[in-house]
Design a protein around this nucleic acid. Structure first.
Lengths: 142, 142
DNA sequence: TTAATTTGGATTAAATTCATCTTATTTATC
DNA sequence: GATAAATAAGATGAATTTAATCCAAATTAA
């Protein structure tokens, strides 16, 4: 019942990018050093965040990583979903899971409500909130 | 970010006992069959619940398992804690974890609030609620 | 007292997940 | 072309989860 290290790493990576100058590319190594995240593991995390459309990567010299959308539009719940996949605190809450007695199952009922409460809190705050950033200052790159 | 199968098994085990006649001993095998829980694995779960003081076990012929306290006094959160240990959705939320910048860390802040919301929901309902049982009918054995 | 039943507890093992490391490739810039 | 940096595939080791085996201890009934 714990999030993985990678999920926290992802949140901290996005915070690091949010704190940087708008649109500026930050090398993975810098994030790794600033946030004490194992570099090679961070690379994988960055790929995940890029595939999820939360960040943009740029190869080559002067390359690096930057936010793809404003930090104020990335909720913590978004990060969780990007890294861990669809959030489900129990197998049975995954719509793919073939639990035969789903509608009337009272266990899944409680778990669903608990999960909803969790997600609501995680959706309440954005990366921008975490770094104490003012809104409306993001300039979309191209 | 998922509970273990064992935690769900524990909830279902307690529900099974709550549905039984008050104070009646139910053999592990019966619970295993009724709830489709691997028998040997269930034994371990039962030991955990017994150590947590939620159930009472009795060896020998006609032996089995029964609730140690009224089903209305066992919340789902209690079961989670008994099986998974102190509930903490991130390592840093464990008071033992030596995160140097705990007080001002905003990540742990969000996570703490999310966890609180989760626990609140899990504490709202008891095993008795899950089986739709009337309260006040429990007779404490000796 | 003996046999049957049932939990207790230790050990082992398979499967999965986590976290990290390795190595090589591609891309961009100077 | 040399260099810097991301991309990608995959290997590895540790931890966790889930499960199975086996034998010991306790209790009850015949």
């Amino acid at each position: 019942m714990q999030i993985t290290r990678q999920t926290e790493y992802a949140v901290r990576t996005l915070m690091e990018l949010a704190k940087a100058e708008q649109g500026k590319l930050i090398p993975t190594k810098t994030i790794s050093l600033n946030q004490s995240i194992p570099e090679v593991f961070l690379k994988k995390t960055i790929q995940i965040l890029a595939n999820a459309g939360l960040i943009v990567t740029q190869r080559g010299t002067q390359g690096g990583v930057r936010l793809a959308i404003p930090a104020s539009e990335i909720t913590i719940a978004d990060v969780f979903t990007a890294v861990e996949g669809r959030l489900a605190i129990n197998v049975c809450l995954n719509e793919i899971y073939p639990c035969p007695n789903k509608p009337e199952c009272r266990v899944s009922g409680v778990l669903q409500r608990a999960q909803d409460a969790l997600v609501a809190e995680l959706s309440r705050e954005s990366i921008a909130d975490l770094v104490g950033q003012l809104e409306g200052t993001f300039i979309r790159g191209n």
